Computed example of a mutant assay.
Amino acid sequence: MEQTTTVPTNRPLLEIACFNAESAVIAARAGADRIELCRDYASGGLSPEPETVRRLKGQISIPIYVMIRPHAESFYYSDTDFETMKRAMFTLKKQGADGFVFGLLTEATQHASGEVAPWIDIARNKELVQLAAGRPCTFHRAFDLIPESQWDTALADLAECGFTSILTSGGPSGKTAMECVDQLHNLIQERRKQLKGRVDDGRLPQILVGGGVRAANIEALWERTCAAAFHSAALDRWSVERVSDGEVNALKAVLDKTRE
């Protein structure tokens, strides 16, 4: 059955990355619109335990998108890895996951521009989207390894795969959204250009801005990009993986001002 996400009216969506159940509950109570659930912050997020998803579905009502990522070595996955990802998706779907977050790339090849970089593994990504059975899928920060010169093609390919959103900092993995704010602006403008004249505009993935997003910089990010969605870990400064309710509140307060 197809799942839908309730998007806030007239303000950007706020997704909070949570690495444990406690943080997900904190984020939901503090006003997050959606949770990205994973584990192991140090690795950048891996697939969560099914039991964590099951318990959270009984505690919070906002959508929970779960990470499908078996390791943090790269975004290229072996046949064994891919089977692991499919099994994880099947199991987490049974536990009530509302959406999925993943991204598979090919090994680095030379593009027409002369750049040597990985590309989107269209066949495998499309297979996982189909396994999601109508639940929305986000292509995560694997996108940041795609050359900027190829973003127009990448948007079209990810739309073909069926992704509903792309999580990106606008630059190479490890860079923050603020460092790449101009690239994010260009990417969102490219998406808008591709939307013109399309009757199936719902199929073009939404840009989800992430990478060091905090209450202190989200206003500047929004003013430059006018992005429709933002992603933050909103971590407590005294804890490695615990979400700060104050930070979530502050992020939401800034985004609420964008509809005034």
Score class of each variant (00 low, 15 high):
Thr168Asn: 06
Arg203His: 10
Gln189Gly: 00
Ile188Tyr: 07
Asp200Ile: 02
Gln206Arg: 14
Ala177Cys: 11
Ile166Arg: 01
Lys196Tyr: 09
Ile188Glu: 04
Pro205Asn: 05
Ser169Ala: 15
Gln183His: 15
Glu190Gln: 12
Gly197Lys: 11
Ser173Gly: 04
Lys175Ala: 14
Pro205Phe: 00
Glu190Trp: 00
Ile207Trp: 07
Ile188Leu: 13
Ile188Asn: 07
Gln189Trp: 03
Met178Ile: 15
Leu167Lys: 09
Gly170Gln: 07
Leu184Ile: 03
Thr168Leu: 06
Arg191Lys: 15
Asp182Ala: 11
Gly162Gln: 08
Thr164Gln: 15
Ile188Ala: 09
Leu204Gly: 05
Leu204Arg: 05
Glu190Lys: 12
Gly162Tyr: 01
Arg198Val: 01
Gln206Ser: 13
Phe163Thr: 02
Ser165Tyr: 04
Ala177Asp: 07
Thr164Cys: 13
Ile166Cys: 00
Cys180Val: 13
Gly170Tyr: 02
Leu208Ile: 11
Asp201Val: 08
Leu204Phe: 04
Gly174Arg: 11
Thr168Pro: 03
Gln189Met: 04
Leu208Tyr: 00
Gln206Gly: 03
Leu167Thr: 06
Gln206Thr: 10
His185Met: 03
Val181Asn: 09
Arg191Met: 01
Ala177Arg: 06
Asp201Leu: 08
Asn186Asp: 14
Lys196Phe: 08
Ile188Pro: 00
Gly202Arg: 12
Asp200Glu: 09
Leu204Thr: 00
Gln183Val: 07
Leu208His: 03
Ile166Asn: 00
Leu195Phe: 05
Glu190Cys: 12
Gly162Phe: 00
Leu167Arg: 05
Pro205Ser: 08
Asp182Trp: 01
Ile207Ser: 07
Leu208Ser: 04
Gly174Asp: 09
Arg198Leu: 07
Arg203Pro: 01
Ile207Val: 15
Asp182Gly: 03
Val199Asn: 10
Leu187Tyr: 06
Val209Pro: 06
Glu190Tyr: 02
His185Ile: 03
Met178Ala: 14
Ile207Pro: 02
Arg192Met: 03
Gly174Asn: 11
Ser173Leu: 13
Gly171Ile: 10
Met178Phe: 13
Ile207Gly: 01
Thr176Tyr: 04
Thr164Trp: 03
Asp200Val: 00
Ser169Leu: 10
Lys175Arg: 15
Ser165Met: 12
Ser169Tyr: 02
Val199Glu: 10
Gly174Ala: 10
Leu195Gly: 03
Met178Thr: 15
Thr164Asn: 11
His185Val: 01
Val181Ile: 15
His185Glu: 08
Pro205Trp: 01
Gln206Val: 01
Val181Lys: 15
Ser165His: 10
Ser165Gln: 14
Ile207Asn: 03
Val199Ile: 11
Ile188Phe: 06
Thr168Ser: 15
Val199Gln: 10
Arg191Gly: 03
Lys193Asp: 10
Lys175Pro: 05
Leu187Trp: 05
Arg192Cys: 01
Leu204Asp: 02
Gly174Met: 09
Arg191Cys: 00
Pro172Met: 08
Asp201Cys: 10
Gln189Val: 01
Leu204Trp: 02
Glu179Ile: 08
Arg203Lys: 12
Leu167Val: 10
Arg191Trp: 02
Gly171Val: 09
Gln189Lys: 06
Ser165Lys: 11
Gly170Leu: 09
Arg191Ile: 00
Gly202Asp: 10
Gly170Glu: 08
Gln194Ser: 05
Leu208Pro: 05
His185Tyr: 07
Gly174Val: 11
Ala177Phe: 04
Glu190Gly: 08
Lys175Ile: 07
Lys175Thr: 15
Gly162Glu: 04
Glu179Ser: 13
Glu179Val: 08
Leu208Ala: 12
